[in-house]
């Protein structure tokens, strides 16, 4: 029986993959049905998953086991219910309080972490002696790191007109930015092709058995 469901799962997976791919030719009913089934299934799945993996283990079970020690968990539960009141036309203002609470708390918690990790540590990592590296490739790399960081930051300084030596430095910064955008595009292309490879490995391997899987 398990074997039957495995095979059924693979055939359904193959059908929906091809149905979604068919959109590349043109919009069609197979694509539309597959898309809507995907959206509906995802919503239903996440709803049940949230109940079983968040609400039951983190709220209901602790309250049931020892209410006295865990009553504090009612606070986030109430905040959660208040957030759902957004659906009521007359009571939707109530949802602003939990939203404000969560945004404020998250900002407060994250602020110091970001300052430390993304500002101080990153700045410290750039304040290096480029010539201390072991070989000439690393030396060039570290010089580029320092020059790229400084010129890139200068490009984003808009309180002074970009002209003369300042303008030239900012222009060098643009080149570094363009290279980084190019690298980001390259990585994105690789990621998208990887997803296609994953689907084709499934179709050619698991479904058709042409390649080993």
């Amino acid at each position: 029986m398990v074997h039957f469901f495995n095979i059924l799962g693979i055939w359904l997976g193959a059908y929906f993959t091809l149905a979604i791919f068919s959109f590349l030719y043109k919009d069609n009913p197979f694509y539309k049905v597959a898309e809507q089934i995907f959206v509906g299934l995802s919503a239903g799945y996440w709803f049940i998953y949230t109940i079983y993996s968040i609400l039951i283990p983190n709220l209901f079970n602790p309250l049931k086991a020892d209410f006295g020690a865990n009553w504090i968990k009612l606070v986030p539960a109430v905040l959660g219910v208040m957030m759902l009141l957004r659906l009521l036309p007359k009571g939707n203002w109530i949802s602003r309080y939990p939203i404000a609470f969560s945004i404020g708390t998250t900002s407060g918690l994250a602020f110091m972490k970001f300052v430390k990790s993304d500002v101080i540590k990153q700045l410290t990592a750039t304040m290096i002696n480029p010539f201390a590296a072991g070989n000439w490739i690393d030396v060039i790399g570290q010089i580029l790191l320092v020059v790229g960081t400084i010129t890139g930051v200068i490009y984003f300084y808009f309180s002074k007109k970009h002209e003369g030596a300042f303008g030239t430095t900012a222009k060098i910064g643009i080149y570094f930015l363009m290279v980084s955008f190019g690298a980001a595009f390259g990585y994105t292309a690789m990621a998208r092709i990887s997803l296609l490879i994953g689907r084709l490995q499934f179709l050619l391997g698991d479904w058709l058995g042409i390649i080993p899987h």
Binding site: T124, A189, I197
Partner: peptide
């Protein structure tokens, strides 16, 4: 691959990350 350019700066002298495996 998509998130690699944003995470690579953590591989630095401060060793915020010890190496990184990026994409396929």
């Amino acid at each position: 691959g998509v998130s690699a350019p944003a995470i690579l700066p953590y591989v630095n002298e401060q060793k915020q990350l010890t190496g990184l495996i990026a994409g396929l």
